[in-house]
Amino acid sequence: MSYVGPGFEPPQPRRSRRGPMTVAVAALVPAALVGWLVYEAVADTGGGRSGAAPVTSSSATGSATASTPQDGRRSATPPDRTPATTRAGAGPLAGKVVVIDPGHNPGNFQHSSEIDRKVNIGTNRKECDTTGTSTNSGYAEARFTLDVARRLRTLLEKQGATVKFTQDGDRPWGPCVDERARIGNEAHADAAISIHADGAPTGDRGFHVIAPASVHAGSADTRRIAAPSRNLGERVAGSFVRVTGSAPSNYVGNGTGLVVRSDLGGLNLSTVPKVFIECGNMRDSKDAASLTSGAWRQKAAQGISEGIVSFLRG
């Protein structure tokens, strides 16, 4: 994701973004180092780059440049429609509810007035949503997030979980970040995850998981979910390293793959355990080769799934 908008606003300047963050448990660091070695030694196979870019923004400056995503299909579904829930059968996660939030929406670029309006994120007011970022060749983050989310849904349903999306390409724009949080809350999700890819400068690479800080301001109160969310984040980060072979971020998180932030509306407004994952940096050619590969996206979904399953099964 690009760090602009209510749930995606920029942290402090890139090299000084190490504000409030929590280092993952000691066991995660060796796993992260193994992932780094694998990442440096083995180049993932790149997939076909297709699509065109939506608005792209820099994590350092928050600037944006408009362009057009390839998937022009639009639904007549009204913006305030609540996405349908998929009910899964028996399995080790039977009775568990997971909410998956595919970041942004391919149609956001056509609805600038709607996504630019301010919503309450608890600590202040921010834009409803953003268009996200893209690879330099035009593969849009909003397409990436939907693809990984759908793969993840299939894996979790095979484990018996009930899976609900915040959007499934079934609405013309959004939802706003406050609604994204509300969908998880109203579903009484046992775990929620928002899927993204970053838009940082070239040379910044690797994934990181974002957990909510303990926030108590206005309508935001994450004190009850901060610890379980960090637990979820640590498990997802550890599994992601192991399954994908990707390195933890080299620009945030001190090599742990885990960051704690207090400025994201999608986390501030959550009342259920929730994390974001930035699966890589779309603006870096090495990361982009992975992000545009269908085989790698399947690994990403598997890594996220195994972290969620580990969290839910304790």
Rank of each mutant, 00 (worst) to 15 (best):
M21V: 06
D170C: 06
G89I: 09
V29C: 02
A53P: 09
I225G: 08
C176P: 11
P30I: 01
D221P: 07
V259I: 10
Q298I: 03
V215E: 00
T65K: 07
T135M: 11
Q12T: 15
L155C: 04
K96Y: 10
R261W: 00
A247N: 14
S305G: 06
T145E: 04
G253P: 12
S310Q: 11
S219E: 09
K126M: 01
V259Y: 11
M282T: 05
P175C: 09
E9I: 10
V252E: 12
A53W: 00
G7Q: 02
V272L: 01
T82I: 14
P175Q: 09
G266F: 05
N108S: 12
Q167Y: 05
G51M: 11
G265E: 00
R14T: 10
G174T: 03
W173G: 01
V275Y: 02
P30R: 00
A213Q: 02
P10W: 01
V98T: 08
V23N: 14
H196S: 14
G62D: 08
S262V: 00
V4D: 10
T56I: 12
N124W: 13
E127V: 03
G174E: 07
A237I: 08
C128W: 03
I210K: 10
L291E: 06
G307P: 11
T244H: 08
A31V: 15
R180V: 15
A88S: 15
I183M: 08
L93V: 12
S75M: 09
A191D: 07
S249A: 15
S285R: 12
D80I: 01
A149C: 10
V29Y: 05
A220F: 00
I210T: 15
G51E: 05
A181G: 01
E186Q: 14
G174V: 02
E186D: 14
A94L: 08
G294T: 14
M21K: 03
S305P: 07
Q159C: 02
H188V: 00
T130K: 00
K164I: 12
T133D: 14
E127P: 09
A24W: 05
P30F: 01
A192W: 02
A288F: 03
G138F: 07
E40S: 08
R283G: 13
Y251R: 09
G238V: 10
R73T: 13
G46F: 12
F311A: 09
A301R: 07
G103E: 11
S285T: 14
P54G: 13
S63I: 11
P83N: 04
S63L: 13
A211Q: 02
N254V: 10
N108I: 08
P11C: 04
V4F: 13
G47L: 07
S285K: 09
A64V: 08
G199H: 09
V209W: 10
T145C: 09
R125L: 12
G5P: 06
S50H: 07
D221Y: 04
P54M: 06
G294Q: 14
N268P: 14
P172M: 15
V272Y: 01
G233I: 13
A247W: 08
R224I: 00
R171Y: 07
D178V: 15
T222D: 00
D287P: 01
V38K: 11
F207K: 06
D170K: 06
L312H: 04
T85Y: 04
D147F: 03
R223C: 00
G132E: 05
P11G: 12
Q110G: 06
H104S: 06
G91T: 07
T123I: 09
G233M: 05
S113G: 05
N120C: 12
